[in-house]
């Protein structure tokens, strides 16, 4: 049961907020056998595998153009515009203070929803949608004490793989976005 893989788009479509297909009406609610299996989207950032709960992700988009916003932290690539909606776009590698690698064609922007606002998270590659039963989740990982610990919500295990589940509220904390030294600039 663990490690059950599905087509990403199918899964997104099914769990997606308010997206109902004809199939849903026909087969309705009989599809799920176990109800408590949380689905996660996994993705790669600087060689490591991370995950976010599928309901936190609204859409996966190709990398789009962003506009630089002055006086903001370096992890903020800028603001982007997806079908008329303005959103901050974050370089996850910089945010997690990981070694920076060249992004290739597989790079994507995960558009997540947090506090009713959209944010874009740039990742190197989107991998899968996986299901992890609650018992395979390890809350408050003890081993992680570094600077990144606050961004981690839990560790998930699917068979042999280990997925770092990210904690959006810490990742998207508004107070980190504005550069602290703004007031010093322009005076030089």
């Amino acid at each position: 049961m663990s490690g059950e893989r599905e087509d990403l788009w199918q899964a997104l479509l099914r769990s997606g907020e308010g997206v109902v297909t004809d199939e849903d009406y026909e087969h309705g609610y009989k599809r799920e056998v176990r109800q408590d299996l949380q689905q996660y989207v996994t993705f790669r950032v600087s060689g490591e595998v991370y995950g976010l709960a599928i309901h936190e992700i609204e859409e996966i988009s190709k990398v789009f153009q962003t506009t630089h916003v002055p006086r903001t932290a370096d992890f903020l690539l800028g603001i982007g515009n997806v079908r008329g909606r303005i959103m901050p776009v974050i370089d996850l590698a910089r945010r997690l203070r990981l070694r920076l690698v060249e992004r290739g064609r597989a790079a994507r922007v995960l558009i997540v929803h947090f506090n009713d606002e959209p944010y874009g998270l740039v990742v190197d590659e989107v991998m899968d949608v996986i299901r992890i039963p609650p018992e395979a989740m390890e809350d408050k990982p003890g081993g992680f004490t570094g600077a990144r610990a606050e961004y981690i919500r839990a560790l998930g295990r699917t068979g042999k793989e280990l997925v770092i589940i990210l904690h959006l509220p810490a990742l998207l904390d508004a107070k980190d976005f504005v550069k602290a030294t703004v007031y010093e600039e322009g005076r030089a």
Partner: peptide
């Protein structure tokens, strides 16, 4: 702008100029 960027001093909002370009 979302709550993350709203408090950047000196920036009041964003707008769209042609060609999907976002401008502050």
């Amino acid at each position: 702008l979302g709550s993350a960027v709203r408090n950047v001093p000196g920036i009041a909002g964003a707008t769209e100029l042609g060609a999907n370009r976002t401008v502050l």
